[in-house]
Computed example of a mutant assay.
Amino acid sequence: MIDSGWLNIGSFVFGLIAWILPVGKLLRNNKQGNQKWFTFSVMSMSACAVSLCFQIIEIYYLVTIEDWSALSDTIGFVTFAATVLLIVTIILNTITLMVYRDKKQST
């Protein structure tokens, strides 16, 4: 069966990747890599999607085994964390888009 601990760890790791990729791209300001910002944004959004998918699988697993107390204890935080993950990922990738779009127009 599924070990839900690994789903939570995987979700956390992919959530971090979703944030690290655009931040890392913004901090590395080199002309050679300016063309690859879109790839980093797609990878970031994909990592966010995988992270959220892991949480959906975790919820499905709890429903399947009918662990209603675990579900009711965690669903509030999971909803909050998923919302924060999505909003911050979108904001970081939007900032990356604006920075590199402006750099492309100025060159």
Score class of each variant (00 low, 15 high):
residue 2 I to T: 14
residue 4 S to E: 12
residue 6 W to T: 10
residue 6 W to F: 13
residue 6 W to G: 10
residue 7 L to I: 10
residue 7 L to W: 00
residue 11 S to E: 03
residue 11 S to F: 03
residue 12 F to P: 00
residue 12 F to M: 14
residue 12 F to N: 10
residue 12 F to S: 05
residue 12 F to A: 05
residue 14 F to V: 00
residue 14 F to W: 10
residue 14 F to I: 00
residue 15 G to K: 02
residue 15 G to M: 04
residue 16 L to A: 15
residue 19 W to Q: 05
residue 20 I to H: 12
residue 21 L to N: 14
residue 21 L to S: 05
residue 21 L to Q: 08
residue 22 P to V: 14
residue 24 G to H: 13
residue 24 G to F: 12
residue 24 G to I: 02
residue 25 K to T: 15
residue 26 L to S: 10
residue 29 N to W: 15
residue 30 N to W: 02
residue 31 K to G: 14
residue 32 Q to M: 13
residue 32 Q to C: 11
residue 32 Q to Y: 04
residue 33 G to L: 10
residue 33 G to E: 15
residue 33 G to T: 08
residue 33 G to I: 03
residue 34 N to W: 06
residue 34 N to D: 11
residue 35 Q to S: 08
residue 37 W to Q: 14
residue 37 W to V: 15
residue 38 F to L: 07
residue 38 F to H: 12
residue 39 T to H: 08
residue 39 T to G: 12
residue 39 T to K: 01
residue 40 F to H: 13
residue 40 F to D: 07
residue 40 F to A: 14
residue 41 S to R: 00
residue 41 S to K: 00
residue 41 S to A: 13
residue 41 S to G: 15
residue 42 V to S: 10
residue 42 V to G: 02
residue 44 S to D: 04
residue 44 S to I: 10
residue 45 M to D: 01
residue 45 M to K: 05
residue 45 M to Q: 07
residue 46 S to D: 02
residue 46 S to H: 08
residue 47 A to R: 09
residue 48 C to N: 04
residue 50 V to L: 14
residue 51 S to H: 00
residue 52 L to D: 00
residue 52 L to C: 06
residue 53 C to A: 09
residue 53 C to S: 12
residue 55 Q to Y: 03
residue 56 I to S: 11
residue 59 I to C: 06
residue 59 I to K: 04
residue 59 I to P: 03
residue 60 Y to E: 09
residue 61 Y to H: 13
residue 61 Y to W: 11
residue 61 Y to K: 04
residue 61 Y to N: 12
residue 61 Y to P: 01
residue 61 Y to V: 07
residue 62 L to V: 03
residue 64 T to R: 08
residue 64 T to P: 00
residue 64 T to Q: 01
residue 65 I to N: 01
residue 65 I to W: 03
residue 66 E to F: 07
residue 66 E to Q: 11
residue 66 E to L: 04
residue 67 D to Y: 04
residue 67 D to T: 07
residue 69 S to R: 11
residue 70 A to R: 07
residue 71 L to P: 12
residue 73 D to N: 13
residue 75 I to Q: 05
residue 76 G to Y: 07
residue 78 V to F: 07
residue 79 T to G: 15
residue 79 T to L: 09
residue 80 F to S: 09
residue 81 A to D: 09
residue 82 A to S: 08
residue 82 A to Q: 04
residue 82 A to G: 13
residue 83 T to S: 06
residue 84 V to T: 10
residue 84 V to F: 12
residue 85 L to P: 01
residue 85 L to W: 00
residue 87 I to P: 02
residue 87 I to G: 02
residue 88 V to P: 02
residue 88 V to N: 05
residue 90 I to P: 01
residue 91 I to N: 05
residue 91 I to W: 04
residue 92 L to Y: 06
residue 92 L to I: 03
residue 92 L to A: 08
residue 93 N to T: 06
residue 93 N to R: 06
residue 96 T to M: 15
residue 96 T to Y: 05
residue 96 T to F: 01
residue 97 L to D: 13
residue 98 M to E: 12
residue 99 V to E: 14
residue 100 Y to H: 13
residue 102 D to G: 09
residue 104 K to P: 01
residue 105 Q to K: 15
residue 106 S to T: 10
residue 106 S to M: 07
